[in-house]
């Protein structure tokens, strides 16, 4: 699978094969993070977040293939981990140089954007499981409200919709206060 093919698949929302393919890069990121005082869990998390940033970028249509997918992916992972280290206040002197190099590529902006969305995601994560299901099914999987009502056992599409609005409402409230 070439980078161009991967791009194509992501555009077409066919994520699974892409994720599988991109997971071949995971050991590298894992090695890096564990080698730089991270845990296995953190490595997983960082890698997954990196994939998300990559997908978002590709979907936005602003991704340029000049440096290669993996370059971008590693850049994001490295930066995310640096942020994490910074939060933990670990020694990162030797990394700073590489960090600065990456900053020029625009990865930093993508990560900042993603961290905002991540907050919104956190707002949804604290909702009840029904809410989360509805929102994920409707907005991510693009399942119709009628089907959702059916699958999740709402009495009507109307009820499901109202439920969805309430969920959005709650998430917004949460975002406003946090």
């Amino acid at each position: 699978m070439t980078d161009a093919e991967i791009l194509q698949l992501i555009q077409e929302e066919k994520l699974r094969p892409v994720i599988k393919k991109l997971y071949t890069y995971y050991p590298v990121v894992k090695k890096h993070i564990i080698g730089n005082s991270g845990s296995r869990q953190e490595a997983e998390d960082i890698f997954q977040d990196s994939l998300i940033v990559l997908f978002t970028k590709i979907r936005s249509g602003n991704f340029e293939l000049s440096s290669g997918l993996h370059t971008y992916l590693f850049g994001v992972a490295r930066l995310l981990w640096l942020e994490e280290l910074r939060k933990k206040n670990k020694k990162i002197s030797s990394e700073t140089i590489a960090y600065n190099q990456l900053a020029e590529t625009g990865i930093e902006a993508d990560i900042r954007e993603d961290s905002k969305v991540k907050k919104a995601q956190a707002a949804i994560e604290q909702l009840g499981s029904k809410c989360k299901q509805i929102l994920e099914l409707f907005y991510f999987k693009k399942v119709s409200m009628k089907e959702i009502a059916n699958d999740l056992g709402f009495s009507s599409e109307k009820v499901a919709k109202n439920q969805k609005y309430r969920c959005i409402e709650k998430a917004k409230e949460y975002l406003k206060t946090n």
Partner: peptide
């Protein structure tokens, strides 16, 4: 933003599951 959050959640779940 909330909707983006919802999509990100979906994406994250998808990625996790794949992992």
């Amino acid at each position: 933003q909330v909707i983006k959050g919802a999509q990100r959640m979906g994406l994250k779940n998808e990625v996790r599951r794949s992992f």
